[in-house]
């Protein structure tokens, strides 16, 4: 699994960090999404899917 972001569209709602904190973080200054692991293990798949599905601006996509 490979996680891709359209970071310029992020609105800093924090849903990704709420549901997949092992994969996503927020910048301390502007609160926008940061990727901690671009290729997270399969054990994170459900959490990443939830993060992608609850992102209010559909910024996260999962490839592979």
């Amino acid at each position: 699994m490979r996680v891709e972001l359209e970071r310029d569209r992020c609105c800093g709602a924090g849903m990704c960090v709420l549901y997949a904190p092992e994969v996503f973080d927020q910048d301390e200054e502007d609160g926008l999404v940061l990727l901690k692991i671009a290729e997270p293990p399969d054990s994170s798949l459900d959490a990443v899917r939830t993060a992608a599905g609850t992102c209010p601006n559909s910024v996260i996509s999962i490839a592979g």
Partner: peptide, 17 residues
Amino acid sequence: HGFYRKQLTGQFTVKRM
């Protein structure tokens, strides 16, 4: 909207909350 919101998003992160 984004100009204003971005002044605040760093203050309302999951970690800060």
